[in-house]
Amino acid sequence: MNGKSNPARLGWSFDVEEYKNAFGFEEVTMLNDQEASAYGIALLQDSDLDAIYSSGHLEKGNVAILAPGNGLGEAGYFFDGKYLRPFATEGGHSEFSPRTNVEVEFYQFLNNIYGIVSWENVLSKTGLFNIYRFLRDVKRHPEPEWLSEKLTNANGNFTEEIFKAAVEEDVLICKIALDTFLEFLAREANNLTLKLKATGGLLIAGDIPQIIRQYIDKDKFYEKFKISDKMEDMLKNIPIYLINPDSTSIDGAALYAAYYKE
């Protein structure tokens, strides 16, 4: 905002005027990471997109971008009638809402930890571990001793360990955790798509989809995504793609620096 940023997760402060003065730059611009990713997506080839659902033709309209990783990035493209124009949001910090009795229990579990429970507390690397430990500590799903040791020594890489245990060792608690995460991902994808009226499509980026790609049931995700009280006719025709490369933010920042001016 106004050339300044204080990302809570980093604990750093940024000011474009300081960079101008320190390095003698004519112009300095800061981009939201997911906005930068949106610019970088413009450089992708068709082979970089993995279809979860495609209706066979692309509708014109806004496009939504959902990216769970260390946090939950949400952005979009506004379709101006000719071009798609990237913009940032902070939708990942909007409040999570439970739907079922078990999800109310999950919400209460997170509420005791965070106070306000955002979607980022659910759809991020920490969020996946929150789901896992709710299943372990509240719902009392058994945790193998060897897995407990791995998670203790994971250095924060919980996603990889939960994924490996689910796929390679068929550990039930890990499979339920991933299934729950993907259901929540489909639901927030639905929310974002409706709020942006993203008839042009939904793009799913971020570290977590890359890590758990092998586990994603595309048909099941699509069925969960299109559930709505009145908008199913719109949602069921929206194409959904997984983005393969993980360098779109860096590429987008370089593209912006090369071609765009304030």
Rank of each mutant, 00 (worst) to 15 (best):
P142I: 07
A67L: 09
I162K: 01
I240G: 00
A165S: 12
D80A: 07
G73W: 01
N2L: 14
K82I: 11
G69C: 04
Y107T: 08
I243L: 12
Y19K: 10
K60T: 12
H57M: 09
Y132S: 01
R99L: 14
N155A: 09
T152V: 03
F134L: 02
G56W: 13
P239N: 14
Y114K: 15
K224R: 15
I131T: 03
L255D: 07
L202S: 06
L147N: 02
R85I: 15
D179S: 12
E120S: 04
V104L: 11
R187L: 09
N6T: 05
V104N: 13
L255W: 06
T100L: 10
F134G: 00
L147C: 02
G252R: 04
Y256Q: 06
Y132Q: 05
F78K: 03
N155H: 12
K82N: 10
G91S: 06
F158Q: 08
N237K: 10
F87N: 02
R85N: 14
I131R: 00
S94V: 09
E183M: 14
F163P: 00
P209L: 03
S94G: 02
L203C: 05
P7Y: 03
A189T: 12
L110G: 04
K82H: 08
N153Q: 08
P209C: 06
Y241I: 01
D33L: 01
L242F: 12
T199R: 07
L203Y: 09
E27D: 15
P209H: 09
G69L: 00
F134V: 07
N70I: 01
L185I: 02
K150E: 11
N244K: 15
G76I: 03
N21E: 14
G115E: 06
G201M: 02
N32Q: 07
Y241N: 04
L128R: 02
E161T: 00
K175S: 15
E120C: 03
E161N: 04
A75K: 01
K150L: 08
N190W: 08
E183Q: 14
P98Y: 14
Y222N: 05
T159C: 06
Y19V: 11
I212E: 02
S54R: 08
K230W: 06
R133L: 09
Q210D: 07
R133G: 10
G61Y: 04
S37I: 00
S249M: 05
